[in-house]
Write a protein that binds this DNA or RNA. Structure first.
Lengths: 171, 171
DNA sequence: TTTAAAAATATTCTAAATCATGTAATCTTG
DNA sequence: CAAGATTACATGATTTAGAATATTTTTAAA
Protein backbone atom coordinates (compact mmCIF):
# COMPACT_ATOMS: atom_id res chain seq x y z
CA UNK A 1 0.00 0.00 0.00
CA UNK A 2 2.63 2.38 0.84
CA UNK A 3 4.48 4.07 -1.13
CA UNK A 4 1.55 3.75 -0.94
CA UNK A 5 4.18 3.56 1.53
CA UNK A 6 6.96 4.71 -0.15
CA UNK A 7 6.34 5.87 1.89
CA UNK A 8 8.40 7.65 0.21
CA UNK A 9 9.42 6.43 1.81
CA UNK A 10 11.71 3.16 1.03
CA UNK A 11 14.54 2.98 -1.38
CA UNK A 12 16.24 -0.26 -2.10
CA UNK A 13 17.03 -3.65 -0.55
CA UNK A 14 18.55 -7.14 -0.78
CA UNK A 15 17.71 -10.71 -0.03
CA UNK A 16 21.07 -12.31 0.23
CA UNK A 17 19.60 -13.16 3.57
CA UNK A 18 16.26 -14.81 4.02
CA UNK A 19 13.17 -12.70 3.77
CA UNK A 20 12.46 -10.43 6.67
CA UNK A 21 8.75 -10.86 6.60
CA UNK A 22 8.01 -14.38 7.72
CA UNK A 23 4.90 -15.93 6.32
CA UNK A 24 2.21 -15.75 8.90
CA UNK A 25 0.11 -18.74 9.80
CA UNK A 26 -3.39 -18.79 8.45
CA UNK A 27 -5.78 -16.58 10.29
CA UNK A 28 -8.57 -18.12 12.27
CA UNK A 29 -11.43 -15.96 11.21
CA UNK A 30 -12.57 -14.04 8.20
CA UNK A 31 -12.84 -14.42 4.49
CA UNK A 32 -9.77 -15.91 2.99
CA UNK A 33 -12.32 -16.92 0.45
CA UNK A 34 -13.15 -13.38 -0.49
CA UNK A 35 -10.46 -13.21 -3.14
CA UNK A 36 -11.25 -9.60 -3.96
CA UNK A 37 -9.73 -7.13 -1.61
CA UNK A 38 -9.77 -3.65 -3.07
CA UNK A 39 -6.07 -3.17 -2.62
CA UNK A 40 -5.08 -6.39 -4.36
CA UNK A 41 -5.77 -4.92 -7.74
CA UNK A 42 -5.05 -1.31 -6.89
CA UNK A 43 -2.05 -0.04 -8.81
CA UNK A 44 -0.77 2.29 -6.11
CA UNK A 45 -0.90 -0.48 -3.59
CA UNK A 46 0.82 -2.93 -5.87
CA UNK A 47 3.57 -0.46 -6.58
CA UNK A 48 4.00 0.32 -2.92
CA UNK A 49 3.98 -3.31 -1.99
CA UNK A 50 6.53 -4.40 -4.56
CA UNK A 51 8.70 -1.42 -3.77
CA UNK A 52 8.44 -2.08 -0.07
CA UNK A 53 9.21 -5.75 -0.28
CA UNK A 54 12.17 -5.48 -2.62
CA UNK A 55 13.60 -2.44 -0.91
CA UNK A 56 13.30 -4.02 2.51
CA UNK A 57 15.35 -6.90 1.25
CA UNK A 58 18.16 -4.73 0.02
CA UNK A 59 17.98 -2.40 2.99
CA UNK A 60 18.88 -5.30 5.23
CA UNK A 61 22.16 -5.50 3.38
CA UNK A 62 22.77 -1.76 3.50
CA UNK A 63 22.18 -1.72 7.22
CA UNK A 64 24.45 -4.71 7.69
CA UNK A 65 27.21 -2.59 6.19
CA UNK A 66 26.53 0.09 8.77
CA UNK A 67 25.11 2.53 6.25
CA UNK A 68 21.89 4.46 6.80
CA UNK A 69 19.28 4.02 4.12
CA UNK A 70 19.12 7.71 3.33
CA UNK A 71 22.88 7.87 3.03
CA UNK A 72 22.79 5.04 0.53
CA UNK A 73 20.10 6.79 -1.43
CA UNK A 74 21.91 10.07 -1.55
CA UNK A 75 25.17 8.47 -2.61
CA UNK A 76 23.48 6.35 -5.26
CA UNK A 77 21.75 9.37 -6.72
CA UNK A 78 24.62 11.78 -6.47
CA UNK A 79 27.49 9.61 -7.58
CA UNK A 80 26.73 10.12 -11.27
CA UNK A 81 25.84 13.79 -10.96
CA UNK A 82 28.72 15.74 -9.48
CA UNK A 83 27.83 19.31 -8.65
CA UNK A 84 24.11 18.69 -8.53
CA UNK A 85 22.33 21.36 -6.54
CA UNK A 86 20.42 20.47 -3.41
CA UNK A 87 16.90 21.06 -4.67
CA UNK A 88 17.43 18.96 -7.75
CA UNK A 89 19.00 16.17 -5.79
CA UNK A 90 16.02 16.37 -3.49
CA UNK A 91 13.64 15.69 -6.36
CA UNK A 92 15.81 12.90 -7.69
CA UNK A 93 16.35 11.14 -4.41
CA UNK A 94 12.74 11.55 -3.35
CA UNK A 95 13.67 13.22 -0.10
CA UNK A 96 12.23 16.55 0.93
CA UNK A 97 14.46 19.56 0.66
CA UNK A 98 14.51 20.45 4.34
CA UNK A 99 15.25 16.88 5.24
CA UNK A 100 17.94 16.59 2.61
CA UNK A 101 19.62 19.72 3.92
CA UNK A 102 20.05 18.02 7.27
CA UNK A 103 21.11 14.71 5.78
CA UNK A 104 23.75 16.25 3.55
CA UNK A 105 25.07 18.40 6.37
CA UNK A 106 25.53 15.26 8.38
CA UNK A 107 27.18 13.55 5.44
CA UNK A 108 29.56 16.45 5.04
CA UNK A 109 30.48 15.93 8.68
CA UNK A 110 31.15 12.27 7.94
CA UNK A 111 33.27 13.14 4.93
CA UNK A 112 30.96 11.42 2.46
CA UNK A 113 30.01 14.46 0.43
CA UNK A 114 31.14 18.05 0.10
CA UNK A 115 29.24 21.24 -0.54
CA UNK A 116 30.29 24.26 -2.55
CA UNK A 117 28.39 27.41 -3.31
CA UNK A 118 27.68 27.89 -6.98
CA UNK A 119 29.86 30.84 -8.02
CA UNK A 120 27.28 32.00 -10.55
CA UNK A 121 24.41 31.86 -8.05
CA UNK A 122 25.33 31.93 -4.42
CA UNK A 123 21.96 30.61 -3.36
CA UNK A 124 22.74 27.26 -4.85
CA UNK A 125 24.69 24.55 -3.11
CA UNK A 126 26.60 22.21 -5.36
CA UNK A 127 27.07 18.73 -3.98
CA UNK A 128 29.91 16.29 -4.62
CA UNK A 129 30.55 12.75 -3.50
CA UNK A 130 33.98 12.56 -1.87
CA UNK A 131 36.43 9.76 -2.40
CA UNK A 132 35.29 8.26 0.88
CA UNK A 133 31.70 8.55 -0.26
CA UNK A 134 32.56 6.83 -3.51
CA UNK A 135 34.29 4.05 -1.65
CA UNK A 136 31.22 3.61 0.49
CA UNK A 137 28.92 3.57 -2.50
CA UNK A 138 30.88 1.24 -4.73
CA UNK A 139 30.22 -2.10 -3.02
CA UNK A 140 26.64 -1.12 -2.33
CA UNK A 141 25.99 -0.38 -5.97
CA UNK A 142 27.56 -3.69 -6.91
CA UNK A 143 25.29 -5.49 -4.47
CA UNK A 144 22.31 -3.50 -5.66
CA UNK A 145 22.89 -4.70 -9.18
CA UNK A 146 23.23 -8.25 -8.00
CA UNK A 147 20.08 -8.00 -5.96
CA UNK A 148 18.22 -6.51 -8.87
CA UNK A 149 19.36 -9.33 -11.06
CA UNK A 150 18.07 -11.83 -8.54
CA UNK A 151 14.79 -10.03 -8.15
CA UNK A 152 14.20 -10.00 -11.87
CA UNK A 153 14.72 -13.73 -12.22
CA UNK A 154 11.07 -14.41 -11.54
CA UNK A 155 10.22 -12.47 -14.68
CA UNK A 156 10.62 -13.35 -18.34
CA UNK A 157 12.93 -11.27 -20.49
CA UNK A 158 9.85 -9.73 -22.05
CA UNK A 159 8.39 -8.84 -18.70
CA UNK A 160 11.59 -7.23 -17.52
CA UNK A 161 11.83 -4.97 -20.51
CA UNK A 162 8.18 -4.08 -20.36
CA UNK A 163 8.34 -3.40 -16.63
CA UNK A 164 11.20 -0.96 -16.85
CA UNK A 165 9.74 0.83 -19.81
CA UNK A 166 6.40 1.16 -18.09
CA UNK A 167 7.92 2.30 -14.81
CA UNK A 168 9.80 5.00 -16.66
CA UNK A 169 6.53 6.18 -18.11
CA UNK A 170 4.92 6.26 -14.69
CA UNK A 171 7.82 7.57 -12.61
CA UNK B 1 15.48 5.63 -5.42
CA UNK B 2 13.33 5.28 -2.46
CA UNK B 3 11.43 2.83 -2.03
CA UNK B 4 14.47 3.50 -2.81
CA UNK B 5 12.08 5.62 -1.10
CA UNK B 6 9.23 3.75 -0.81
CA UNK B 7 9.09 4.63 1.72
CA UNK B 8 8.49 3.73 2.54
CA UNK B 9 6.72 5.35 2.76
CA UNK B 10 3.93 6.18 0.56
CA UNK B 11 0.66 4.70 -0.29
CA UNK B 12 -1.54 6.27 -2.82
CA UNK B 13 -2.35 9.63 -4.37
CA UNK B 14 -4.35 11.69 -6.84
CA UNK B 15 -3.82 14.33 -9.45
CA UNK B 16 -7.21 15.90 -9.69
CA UNK B 17 -5.11 18.87 -8.79
CA UNK B 18 -2.02 19.79 -10.67
CA UNK B 19 1.17 17.96 -9.88
CA UNK B 20 2.80 18.80 -6.61
CA UNK B 21 6.30 18.51 -7.87
CA UNK B 22 6.86 21.43 -10.18
CA UNK B 23 9.36 20.86 -12.91
CA UNK B 24 12.55 22.50 -11.90
CA UNK B 25 14.39 24.82 -14.24
CA UNK B 26 17.42 23.38 -15.92
CA UNK B 27 20.45 23.25 -13.77
CA UNK B 28 23.39 25.44 -14.55
CA UNK B 29 26.21 23.01 -14.05
CA UNK B 30 26.96 19.37 -14.56
CA UNK B 31 26.34 16.62 -16.98
CA UNK B 32 22.84 16.61 -18.28
CA UNK B 33 24.62 14.94 -21.14
CA UNK B 34 25.61 11.93 -19.07
CA UNK B 35 22.41 10.07 -19.82
CA UNK B 36 23.40 7.15 -17.63
CA UNK B 37 22.79 7.69 -14.00
CA UNK B 38 22.91 4.42 -12.11
CA UNK B 39 19.50 4.93 -10.59
CA UNK B 40 17.76 5.60 -13.88
CA UNK B 41 17.80 1.97 -14.80
CA UNK B 42 17.73 0.55 -11.30
CA UNK B 43 14.55 -1.37 -10.66
CA UNK B 44 14.23 -0.50 -6.99
CA UNK B 45 14.62 3.15 -7.79
CA UNK B 46 12.13 3.02 -10.60
CA UNK B 47 9.60 1.31 -8.39
CA UNK B 48 10.15 3.79 -5.60
CA UNK B 49 9.96 6.70 -7.94
CA UNK B 50 6.75 5.61 -9.64
CA UNK B 51 5.21 4.71 -6.33
CA UNK B 52 6.27 8.00 -4.81
CA UNK B 53 5.03 10.13 -7.62
CA UNK B 54 1.67 8.49 -8.03
CA UNK B 55 1.06 8.18 -4.33
CA UNK B 56 1.97 11.79 -3.70
CA UNK B 57 -0.64 12.79 -6.20
CA UNK B 58 -3.39 10.85 -4.51
CA UNK B 59 -2.24 11.78 -1.04
CA UNK B 60 -2.91 15.39 -1.84
CA UNK B 61 -6.53 14.45 -2.27
CA UNK B 62 -6.65 12.35 0.89
CA UNK B 63 -5.18 15.20 2.89
CA UNK B 64 -7.60 17.66 1.35
CA UNK B 65 -10.37 15.51 2.82
CA UNK B 66 -8.78 15.85 6.24
CA UNK B 67 -7.73 12.21 6.40
CA UNK B 68 -4.30 11.09 7.49
CA UNK B 69 -2.45 8.93 5.00
CA UNK B 70 -2.05 6.08 7.43
CA UNK B 71 -5.74 6.19 8.25
CA UNK B 72 -6.56 5.92 4.57
CA UNK B 73 -4.23 2.99 4.21
CA UNK B 74 -5.64 1.13 7.15
CA UNK B 75 -9.22 1.65 6.04
CA UNK B 76 -8.46 0.66 2.47
CA UNK B 77 -6.80 -2.53 3.60
CA UNK B 78 -9.23 -3.46 6.32
CA UNK B 79 -12.51 -2.68 4.65
CA UNK B 80 -12.58 -5.96 2.75
CA UNK B 81 -11.26 -8.05 5.62
CA UNK B 82 -13.44 -7.71 8.68
CA UNK B 83 -11.97 -9.33 11.75
CA UNK B 84 -8.42 -9.32 10.44
CA UNK B 85 -5.92 -9.57 13.26
CA UNK B 86 -3.44 -6.82 13.91
CA UNK B 87 -0.28 -8.58 12.81
CA UNK B 88 -1.77 -9.67 9.53
CA UNK B 89 -3.13 -6.23 8.84
CA UNK B 90 0.31 -4.92 9.61
CA UNK B 91 1.84 -7.06 6.88
CA UNK B 92 -0.88 -6.14 4.45
CA UNK B 93 -0.84 -2.43 5.06
CA UNK B 94 2.95 -2.27 5.13
CA UNK B 95 3.02 -0.62 8.53
CA UNK B 96 5.04 -2.01 11.38
CA UNK B 97 3.17 -3.77 14.12
CA UNK B 98 4.13 -1.43 16.94
CA UNK B 99 3.19 1.53 14.83
CA UNK B 100 -0.06 -0.03 13.73
CA UNK B 101 -1.02 -0.72 17.33
CA UNK B 102 -0.85 2.99 18.01
CA UNK B 103 -2.60 3.97 14.81
CA UNK B 104 -5.50 1.60 15.36
CA UNK B 105 -5.85 2.67 18.98
CA UNK B 106 -6.17 6.21 17.75
CA UNK B 107 -8.66 5.15 15.10
CA UNK B 108 -10.73 3.37 17.73
CA UNK B 109 -10.79 6.66 19.60
CA UNK B 110 -12.04 8.36 16.47
CA UNK B 111 -14.71 5.73 15.93
CA UNK B 112 -13.28 4.56 12.61
CA UNK B 113 -12.50 1.00 13.64
CA UNK B 114 -13.25 -1.29 16.54
CA UNK B 115 -11.19 -3.96 18.24
CA UNK B 116 -12.34 -7.22 19.70
CA UNK B 117 -10.34 -9.97 21.30
CA UNK B 118 -10.46 -13.23 19.42
CA UNK B 119 -12.46 -15.58 21.68
CA UNK B 120 -10.45 -18.58 20.55
CA UNK B 121 -7.12 -16.89 21.19
CA UNK B 122 -7.12 -13.95 23.51
CA UNK B 123 -3.76 -12.76 22.28
CA UNK B 124 -5.26 -11.79 18.97
CA UNK B 125 -7.04 -8.53 18.27
CA UNK B 126 -9.68 -8.65 15.60
CA UNK B 127 -10.21 -5.40 13.77
CA UNK B 128 -13.36 -4.08 12.17
CA UNK B 129 -14.14 -0.98 10.18
CA UNK B 130 -17.08 0.83 11.76
CA UNK B 131 -19.88 2.41 9.80
CA UNK B 132 -18.17 5.76 10.24
CA UNK B 133 -14.96 4.24 8.98
CA UNK B 134 -16.74 2.83 5.97
CA UNK B 135 -18.29 6.19 5.25
CA UNK B 136 -14.89 7.77 5.40
CA UNK B 137 -13.39 5.16 3.14
CA UNK B 138 -16.08 5.05 0.49
CA UNK B 139 -15.43 8.33 -1.34
CA UNK B 140 -11.69 7.85 -1.01
CA UNK B 141 -11.85 4.45 -2.65
CA UNK B 142 -13.96 5.89 -5.43
CA UNK B 143 -11.43 8.63 -6.00
CA UNK B 144 -8.59 6.13 -5.80
CA UNK B 145 -10.13 4.16 -8.62
CA UNK B 146 -10.59 7.26 -10.67
CA UNK B 147 -7.05 8.34 -10.05
CA UNK B 148 -5.77 4.92 -10.96
CA UNK B 149 -7.71 5.02 -14.16
CA UNK B 150 -6.16 8.37 -15.02
CA UNK B 151 -2.70 7.18 -14.14
CA UNK B 152 -3.01 4.16 -16.37
CA UNK B 153 -4.04 6.21 -19.39
CA UNK B 154 -0.44 6.71 -20.40
CA UNK B 155 -0.14 2.95 -20.87
CA UNK B 156 -1.49 0.67 -23.53
CA UNK B 157 -3.99 -2.02 -22.59
CA UNK B 158 -1.21 -4.56 -22.98
CA UNK B 159 1.10 -2.64 -20.72
CA UNK B 160 -1.53 -2.28 -18.02
CA UNK B 161 -2.18 -5.96 -17.88
CA UNK B 162 1.47 -6.82 -17.96
CA UNK B 163 2.27 -4.27 -15.27
CA UNK B 164 -0.24 -5.58 -12.79
CA UNK B 165 0.68 -9.16 -13.41
CA UNK B 166 4.34 -8.41 -12.95
CA UNK B 167 3.78 -6.34 -9.85
CA UNK B 168 1.88 -9.19 -8.30
CA UNK B 169 4.82 -11.44 -8.98
CA UNK B 170 7.19 -8.99 -7.37
CA UNK B 171 5.06 -7.76 -4.46
C1' DT C 1 0.86 -30.91 34.10
C1' DT C 2 4.86 -27.84 34.78
C1' DT C 3 8.43 -25.64 31.94
C1' DA C 4 10.29 -23.78 27.99
C1' DA C 5 9.42 -21.74 23.61
C1' DA C 6 6.71 -19.16 20.54
C1' DA C 7 3.19 -15.83 19.11
C1' DA C 8 0.46 -11.47 19.44
C1' DT C 9 0.32 -7.21 20.97
C1' DA C 10 1.75 -3.23 23.88
C1' DT C 11 5.19 0.07 25.53
C1' DT C 12 9.16 2.97 25.61
C1' DC C 13 12.67 5.40 23.58
C1' DT C 14 14.91 7.21 19.70
C1' DA C 15 15.33 8.32 14.85
C1' DA C 16 13.49 10.08 10.80
C1' DA C 17 10.25 12.68 8.04
C1' DT C 18 7.19 16.65 7.44
C1' DC C 19 5.40 21.39 7.93
C1' DA C 20 5.63 26.00 8.33
C1' DT C 21 8.29 29.58 8.26
C1' DG C 22 12.65 32.38 7.95
C1' DT C 23 16.60 34.43 5.45
C1' DA C 24 19.45 35.56 1.81
C1' DA C 25 20.31 35.87 -3.11
C1' DT C 26 18.53 36.65 -7.58
C1' DC C 27 15.04 38.14 -10.97
C1' DT C 28 11.48 41.07 -12.77
C1' DT C 29 9.56 45.03 -14.18
C1' DG C 30 8.06 49.47 -13.97
C1' DC D 1 17.99 50.85 -10.33
C1' DA D 2 14.50 50.12 -6.55
C1' DA D 3 10.34 47.35 -4.79
C1' DG D 4 8.23 43.25 -4.97
C1' DA D 5 8.28 38.53 -6.40
C1' DT D 6 10.71 34.27 -6.76
C1' DT D 7 14.17 30.89 -5.82
C1' DA D 8 17.33 28.20 -2.88
C1' DC D 9 18.28 26.78 1.19
C1' DA D 10 18.08 26.66 6.45
C1' DT D 11 15.79 26.23 10.96
C1' DG D 12 12.59 24.84 14.52
C1' DA D 13 8.58 22.53 16.03
C1' DT D 14 5.69 18.61 15.48
C1' DT D 15 4.35 14.19 13.69
C1' DT D 16 5.35 9.74 12.19
C1' DA D 17 8.13 5.67 11.94
C1' DG D 18 11.08 2.22 13.86
C1' DA D 19 13.90 -0.77 17.07
C1' DA D 20 14.11 -3.00 21.17
C1' DT D 21 11.93 -4.89 24.71
C1' DA D 22 8.14 -6.26 27.95
C1' DT D 23 3.72 -8.63 28.82
C1' DT D 24 0.25 -11.87 28.18
C1' DT D 25 -1.47 -15.90 26.19
C1' DT D 26 -0.83 -20.31 23.65
C1' DT D 27 1.65 -24.13 22.18
C1' DA D 28 4.94 -27.82 22.57
C1' DA D 29 7.86 -30.83 24.94
C1' DA D 30 9.57 -33.44 28.55
Amino acid sequence: MHEIIDSHAILWNLDFMELLVPTLPETTQSNDTAASRFVDDYLLYQLASASHRLSSEFHAYVKSRGVKIYVWRVLACLVDQPGLMLTRLSALVLIEQSRLTKITDQMVGEGLVSKRADPTDRRKTMLYVTEKGAQTARPLIAQAKEHEEKSLRVLTAQERKSLKRVLKKLG
